[in-house]
Design a protein around this nucleic acid. Structure first.
Lengths: 196, 196
DNA sequence: CGAGCGCTTGATTGAGTTCAAAAATCGTGG
DNA sequence: CCACGATTTTTGAACTCAATCAAGCGCTCG
């Protein structure tokens, strides 16, 4: 069950069997059923998750009750409200399972503890934070500069397999447009002979 | 000249005179004249900056030559293309000095080196990364869910003193709208007796 | 003092929204 | 496995917010 996270870590650092054995003592697997809520805005997060199978999701809900999707986490992605966890603050976002999901539960202090044995895990953690920042910078840039169609094309490039797994209204929510608009964008692309 | 960064660090951790003395050996001050370019998209970054006085700025330029501002860094803010620095990749963004600016130059490996003497600087670095992530998550959420007016009100709340220091077209660029639209948003707010 | 830049204002256009309803798809229980 | 209800997607029409295009004003700085 932990093979996936192990091979993820191994892409960025070397980890012996013994080392992984030790640090993984603090890890456990949890499954979420489709639609299950993981964390509500206002609550304080205590765990991060690494998705083995399925799909988790982070979103906000505005005053009108409309959802705005901040992040999708399919297989081999991490997701967590790091701020809520680190600063012990109520989260601004909701987290739920969009599909039946199996995830590795990462305790609050996992990296600190594990780094006592395998110091370069700190560096690993650092790399993940940077990747997350790069990802969000790109997203901000897209939201500032690209049209709905460009953002959609970028989405299917970024998450090729999600395009079919996720309901269209969620993709629309991620892109910052209405489901109706996304439907029209897709129609236009089809007309232009685009194969999605 | 380094008092500012010292007091910034001291807000999050304890630092003795001797410790600061040692780690600051790697720091130097640099000034940028108004309009000076610091890093161009495509180049690889080598330094981060902590702004003592003035204003630095990170932005992209789209195919049509239009600027989109990702971040402002006024006094006591950090700015850097951490990804370019960490992964040795060409940057996606431009960095320049919007005002005459005095900044502390932070070398690539400053935190790693300094942490050898003051380990909790690693933690400090971690906190800064998290703050940056929180900041960007909020920005993404605003871009997904708020109107131009709401985003402008949020901006003047976030950067109260920038509102007057920065040309309006730059604020518009940060908000993701045109200068003309911002002008109209402000006119509307004035009509509604809003004191900006 | 004039050229250039930034801001405003007006008129027009356009991308995307809203509201409404039909069509397609999905899921669940019989 | 089918049928029925619910959800999702599509389509249409009217509308709205913000973009674009264009002109004019006011400052500042050379």
């Amino acid at each position: 069950m932990l093979e996936q996270i192990r091979s993820y870590l191994n892409k960025n650092m070397a980890l012996t069997d013994a080392q992984f054995e030790t640090i993984s003592a603090n890890l456990r697997i949890r499954t979420f059923s489709k639609g299950e809520t993981i964390l509500r805005a206002g609550e304080i997060g205590t765990y991060s998750f690494f998705v083995n199978k399925g799909l988790l999701r982070c979103f906000s809900i505005d005053e009108k009750g409309k959802e705005h999707i901040i992040q999708f986490a399919p297989e081999n992605w991490w997701i967590s409200d790091r701020n809520s966890i680190l600063f012990n603050e109520p989260s601004d976002f909701f987290y739920d399972a969009t599909e039946e999901t199996e995830a590795v539960v990462i305790p609050k202090d996992f990296f600190e503890q594990a780094a006592l044995l395998v110091p370069c895990l700190l560096n690993m953690n650092n790399i993940m934070l940077h990747k997350s920042i790069r990802f969000m910078q790109k997203r901000i840039n897209m939201l500032l500069s690209a049209t709905a169609e460009e953002r959609y094309l970028d989405f299917i490039h970024l998450y090729p397999n999600l395009t079919l797994r996720v309901p269209q209204w969620m993709i629309a929510s991620y892109l910052g447009i209405t489901p109706e608009s996304l439907s029209r964008v897709r129609k236009d692309l089809a007309r232009k002979h685009f194969k999605g």
